[in-house]
């Protein structure tokens, strides 16, 4: 008799598909995973339908790995359905964990975004100014679309999440570690982030050459040719390493790119953006208020930079809207 293997489901919500790619990045180790588990749902790779999952018994899936932010009503429905069917829900990747890059939409309203994307964008040709509708009729057939939400949410805003795997995309080692932990039953406490609870600077291969970091001017990485092997903060580049969790093996810093904070904050930190503002204020020396204002103005979209991956998990979550729908 064949051994009953634990059932695993993958699902994607408001995401780019990079997380799915990171599963494939397991390379030959994916064969070990496939040998140990039974994949029952994976829209991007396998031909199982929503109805197949709906037909399964509640709780019959051992673990569902969900990536992507909750962007529309379809995402919310699928998330709630998978919560019923799966014993463990793992928020996989920065979007499910923190809200991710789609979360930057929280600095705008849905109407602003539609206007920009479907009407004003220089690459769009839309003379009839058509924007997506919830319902439309084509040749007598009614077609429907899910509602796009005004506010992007992270996965744990709609359902209870058991574990988080951070990263944009997560390092394959983290996925492998999580799969092994789940298979062996050796699991950390509910709600844990399955990545080391240490700071990025801890493992960063770049070295500090001076005793004290002093930023004279804020630069973006494309504005300079960085000195190899030297701390990017020392070179004036705003690197989010000081407020970011590690686990990614310092992938960006290895190629002298600044950290953008995709792994989110460590357990002790509630809001990485405000923490970064705190940290940044300690490493420049302007004391005159006018100079300070000038320096702050020299940073383009500071809030979007520090909340690049985490707007929906910040304290304030979104911009105040003039009209609340």
């Amino acid at each position: 008799m064949a051994v009953v293997k634990p059932k695993v489901a993958f699902y994607w919500m408001g995401t780019c598909g990079g997380c799915e790619e990171s599963v494939v990045d397991l390379a030959e180790r994916i064969l070990d995973v496939v040998a140990a588990v039974d994949i029952v749902f994976w829209p991007v790779a396998l031909d199982f339908k929503k109805a197949d999952v709906e037909a399964m018994e509640d709780g019959s899936i051992a673990v569902a790995l969900i990536n992507g932010s909750v962007r529309n009503s379809e995402d919310e429905k699928m998330g709630k359905m998978l919560r019923k069917k799966a014993g463990l829900i793992v928020a996989y990747g920065a979007c499910a964990h923190l809200g991710g890059i789609p979360g930057l939409a929280n600095f705008h309203t849905r109407e602003e975004i539609f206007q920009k994307v479907y009407i004003e964008a220089p690459t769009i040709n839309n003379p009839k100014k058509i924007i997506p509708q919830l319902e439309t009729e084509v040749n007598g057939v009614k077609l429907t679309l899910p509602t796009i939400y005004n506010t992007v949410k992270k996965l744990d805003d709609i359902i209870d999440v058991d574990y988080y795997i951070p990263g944009c995309p997560p390092h394959p080692d983290l996925l492998m570690g999580a799969v092994q932990a789940i298979l062996s039953g050796n699991l950390p406490p509910h709600g844990s982030v399955l990545s080391p609870n240490r700071n990025m600077c801890d493992t960063c291969p770049l070295e500090r050459k001076e005793d004290k970091i002093i930023m004279k001017k804020f630069k973006r990485i494309h504005q300079i040719i960085p000195e190899e092997g030297q701390c990017l903060l020392e070179q004036g580049v705003m690197c989010l390493g000081p407020v970011t969790r590690n686990g990614c093996d310092a992938a960006c810093m290895k190629v002298t790119m600044p950290c953008r904070g995709c792994y989110g904050p460590t357990d002790e930190v509630e809001d990485m953006g405000t923490k970064y503002a705190s940290a940044l204020a300690s490493i420049w020396e302007e004391t005159d208020e006018e100079d300070v204002i000038r320096m702050v103005k020299s940073i383009p979209s500071f809030a979007k930079m520090v909340y690049y991956f985490s707007t929906p998990s910040s304290i304030l979550k979104r911009k105040k809207m003039e009209v609340i729908p």
Binding site: T274, V292, M295, I299
Partner: peptide
């Protein structure tokens, strides 16, 4: 002073 002005910049983005 530096923290305050960085924070002000963020609050503006949040519409406060």
């Amino acid at each position: 002073i530096r923290r305050f002005h960085l924070m002000n910049n963020m609050l503006e983005s949040f519409g406060i």
